[in-house]
Amino acid sequence: MKILPGGACEAGTTRVNKTGGWRTFKPVYDYDKCIKCKLCELLCPDMAVNPRDDGYFEFDYDYCKGCGICANECPKSAIEMVLEEK
């Protein structure tokens, strides 16, 4: 890597920083309860909720910091925060 004049940075490059390691609790879906309302995807401050082809979602544990907003806001309580085992 060479510093460009003025230090311009290429887009989206913080993705090299896997923030999943920060997590204490990890969110886990109960797909039986999920109504695909997309609220978890919308609210995630770390863009760590990805849509699946079947309309459900999955967590990107590379980036999920385990804040628990998704679980707290889920209208169907379809997300459980479980203690991370390392």
Partner: peptide, 20 residues
């Protein structure tokens, strides 16, 4: 996402949500 993952905001960061 126009605002991407890997940022150093705290877990549950309001700024990240606002930017998104």
């Amino acid at each position: 996402n126009l605002f991407d993952s890997g940022h150093r905001g705290c877990a549950g960061c309001c700024d990240a949500m606002a930017a998104k």
